[in-house]
Design a protein around this nucleic acid. Structure first.
Length: 286
DNA sequence: ACCTACCTGTTT
DNA sequence: AAACAGGTAGGT
């Protein structure tokens, strides 16, 4: 489900409703989804901030007493995870794994519910220094593509150690750029007019600039449209995204390219299904 | 730089 | 029955 635009949309939808509330209790229906410090550690702590790094969603949990320990709660939704809010207590359903009751001082309690059909998603809890310093335990992640500092120069630097990697694999590599997954990698390459088979080391300056621009523009537009709902993805209030109506190549194999009408191709690359237009994205012969 | 495993559900 | 699905960790 969730690439950067979807995770950012979930974060924005949850933030105003969870920040300022404290954890009443945590019900861990599926213990295997929880890593690091145990869920009991956050009882009584207050959510003071949400953040996102790549596809990771983070909540800072501050103690009410100065002597207490603060934590980062780090959530990764992987393929089919959903993090939603419910006004009423929600009984555990088939794929419910975590339920957190949050209390506001004057507001009635609200429930943060984690559901995940495939059970790939994870909650990780780490003792924290400060809300300004993200947990060091996150895997090595490349730059945030929506930060102002991201551009052709930074992308070229990130790609420089991977000249023999094809562009599809490069965009999927979270250590090169954080947050891009299978849908947006294909859409970014289409917008760049670059073949997914091109090698990272083969780009000239103009091509690198086009790629960097497309990374930003595609992800920004997808955030504006609240992400892509193919099947499972919804935001914190069960609302679907609408970027699925804007897809140019992903999921369109055999259909005419929306720019030139030639049939969109599909093949497995970097272990993932990859969609591209052979006319708009000329590259190596197959 | 690749492969498989992790899971369940849906599509071919 | 087999392939496939928004992702990543861990193996070779």
């Amino acid at each position: 489900m969730p690439e950067l635009p979807e995770v950012e949309t979930v974060r924005r939808s949850l933030d105003p409703f969870v920040v300022g509330r404290s954890v009443n209790r945590v019900i861990l229906d599926t213990p295997s989804v929880w890593c690091g410090a145990g869920p009991d550690a956050i009882a009584g702590l207050t959510v003071t901030r949400s953040a996102r790094r790549g596809k990771y969603l983070l909540f800072f949990l501050a103690p009410t007493h100065a002597a207490g320990t603060a934590y980062w709660l780090v959530v990764h939704l992987r393929m089919t995870g959903r993090l939603t809010l419910q006004d009423a207590p929600e009984p555990a359903r088939k794929h419910t794994h975590v339920r957190i009751e949050l209390d506001g001082e004057t507001m009635p309690p609200i429930w943060l519910i984690f559901q995940d059909t495939r059970r790939f998603g994870r909650f990780s809890l780490y003792p924290a220094q400060s809300a300004d310093q993200l947990p060091a335990a996150l895997p090595r992640l490349g730059p945030e593509p929506l930060e102002p500092s991201f551009g052709a120069e930074l992308l070229a630097r990130q790609l420089s150690g991977h000249s023999r990697l094809n562009l599809k694999a490069a965009l999927l590599n979270q250590a090169i750029v954080a947050g891009i997954g299978n849908i947006y990698a294909d859409e970014i390459l289409f917008a760049s007019r670059l073949s997914p088979q091109r090698l990272a080391g083969s780009l000239d300056d103009a091509e690198t600039a086009r790629l960097a621009d497309a990374v930003r523009s595609v992800l920004l537009r997808a955030v504006d449209l609240c992400g892509t709902t193919l099947k499972d993805y919804v935001d914190g209030w069960n609302r679907k995204g609408s970027f699925q109506h804007c897809l140019m190549v992903y999921g369109r194999s055999g259909q005419p390219c929306r720019r030139c009408s030639l049939a969109v191709q599909k093949k497995k690359l970097a272990g993932r299904s990859t969609h591209w237009c052979p006319a708009c994205q000329p590259g190596l012969p197959d």
